[in-house]
């Protein structure tokens, strides 16, 4: 990340307050998106494994797989609050 103070000193205001906010919001979405993707991958593969042996676990597997989706929703909320 570019240090805003240095950036201002060298080449003028690349990141003003609005830019910082946008960057914060983007970070909130990106990091939570990656985190939930990773968690869903782990749970999803495990759910598929269980389903391969026992099809009746489909419902439970599906629910458990989408639970980490909450992480990215929190990220979205944080991003909206930052921009709001």
């Amino acid at each position: 990340m570019v240090d805003p103070v240095t950036a201002t000193a060298v080449a003028g205001p690349i990141l003003d307050a609005a830019g910082m906010k946008a960057l914060g919001a983007a970070l909130a979405i990106t990091v939570t998106g990656l985190a939930s993707a990773w968690a869903e991958k782990e749970i999803g593969t495990a759910a598929i494994g269980a389903m391969a042996e026992n099809e009746s676990l489909f419902g439970k597997g599906l629910i458990l797989t989408v639970i980490p989706e909450t992480i990215v929703i929190f990220g979205l909320v944080a991003a909206l609050l930052i921009n709001g």
């Binding site: 495990a46 269980a50 676990l57």
Partner: peptide
């Protein structure tokens, strides 16, 4: 994750 859950099942 996949193998262990399947094996547990």
């Amino acid at each position: 994750a996949y193998a262990v859950t399947r094996v547990r099942a």
